[in-house]
Amino acid sequence: MRALTAFMNGVTRLNDFIGRWVAWLVAAMFVLLLLEVGFRYLLNAPTVWTNELTQMLFGVYAILSGGYIMAHRGHVNVDLLYSHFGRRTRAGLDIFTSIVFFIFTLALLYFGADMAQESIRNLETTYSAWNPPIWPIKAAIPLGAGLLVLQGVVKLLQDIAIAFNLSYYTPEPEEEAGEHV
């Protein structure tokens, strides 16, 4: 049981750590776009790489956010019925609906990995004027999906613990989902 607890905490901490770093990419995107505007408007010398790099960073930023947001209960749901139920009923429902969650995320993990593997094998590049390697960005899809799946497993274990009163997880005091850091 202790291993289970350690696993759950470890995954959450991993997603937290990754999230805190990846969150800074917004600053990078800001700088890059502004640079391009400067190069093009002030120097009349647009670059071939800024917009494309911004785009790539944005893709990584978005796909890697899944697990972090899951850890912070930031994926928005409809609480119409849900909020009327007690905690254990909600956990039971979440266990049931997690089937749909895992179908989606595992399909994404499997086919994302397939897509990434093919890209890595060919060391695929974008064939734009800049022509940077694209495979690291494609590899971010299975990575992001994997982090989300892991956090989903943590959530499932938590729900099982709540629903069946198991000791390996003590839920925090009641708090509703919403934006809080």
């Binding site: 800074w24 600053a27 947001i69 930031g74 994926h75």
Partner: peptide
């Protein structure tokens, strides 16, 4: 800035996964 970037990450990610 860090706090703003974390909150941005959460909200953008929420939108993007939808």
């Amino acid at each position: 800035i860090q706090e703003a970037s974390i909150r941005t990450f959460k909200l953008t990610g929420m939108i993007m996964w939808i």
